[in-house]
């Protein structure tokens, strides 16, 4: 069953391609880590919506208690709004809402630019997602599936496409996610500042084993990473040599 899915998928979509949108490149300077800025903006926004929510809720609760019906035949005594009051009750809230909205939108746009501006000199990895695994290819030709070894302290940009259906690379720890799909090239970047392991998981429904499609980013110190990359490359060389002999 699984295999049938896989092969038919490959058969249907052997010819792929892409339409890479504009890749903005950040001008030099310090690397702005979107994950950190995300947390900052999130905290701000949470405060914002909590205040609005609590104010609304308190007003509603106050009105509910204050104006509860005390006699069975009691009726409301609504205020008569003058034309000016009618307009004011629209315009003032509209301005308040819009001010808040546009303030948040501006902050969000800023953060968005951080997310989409890949720092110069990032380590570029290719991803080919397929049902149901993440297959990475390093610049030195080393390929790995499931895990992605990277160097700590260096931004990583992933150039993505898919062999079959739409997938999405999601790394919760780096607060980043982007779909990969056949026929288009997409990208995301993240900044593993320290060494450590982080879950990669698929966030776009891709069939039976969607939830089983996960892997790990393994960020290692520079020298360790270099050693790993060299060892892996050597393995390929040996394998090629052996393949050539036989």
């Amino acid at each position: 069953m699984l295999k049938r899915f896989g092969t038919s998928a490959l058969a249907v979509l052997t010819v792929l391609g892409a339409c890479s949108g504009a890749w903005a490149s950040a001008a030099g300077g310090a690397i702005k880590n979107p994950a950190a800025n995300w947390q900052h903006l999130w905290d701000e926004m949470l405060l914002d919506i909590t205040i609005i929510g609590v104010v609304f809720a308190l007003i509603i609760i106050y009105l509910l208690i204050r104006y509860r019906r005390t006699q069975p035949d009691q009726e409301g005594n609504p205020p008569v709004l003058s034309l000016a009051a009618q307009h004011a009750w629209v315009l003032i809230p509209v301005f308040l809402f819009m001010a808040d909205d546009l303030f948040l939108a501006a902050r969000g746009w800023n953060l968005w630019n951080d997310y989409r501006s890949v720092p110069a000199g990032s380590y570029e990895v290719e991803l080919k997602a397929q049902m149901w695994s993440f297959n990475f290819k390093h610049p030195n030709g080393v390929e790995e599936s499931g895990t992605l070894h990277v160097e700590a302290g260096k931004p990583v940009v992933v150039r993505m496409t898919s062999a079959d259906v739409v997938h999405s690379m999601f790394i919760p720890d780096f607060k980043v996610k982007e779909d990969s799909m056949p026929g288009r090239v997409t990208y995301l970047w993240f900044y593993p500042e320290k060494s450590g392991e982080h879950v990669i998981t698929c966030a776009e429904y891709c069939g039976m084993m969607h939830s089983g499609m996960h892997g790990k980013v393994i960020a290692m110190p520079k020298d360790q990473f270099q050693a790993w990359a060299d060892a892996e490359k050597a393995k390929i060389a040996t394998a090629n040599a052996e393949g050539g002999k036989s």
Binding site: G17, S20, E124, R159, V185
Partner: peptide
Amino acid sequence: DDDKFLGAK
């Protein structure tokens, strides 16, 4: 092989 090279820098 478009698939491999599209998007390459």
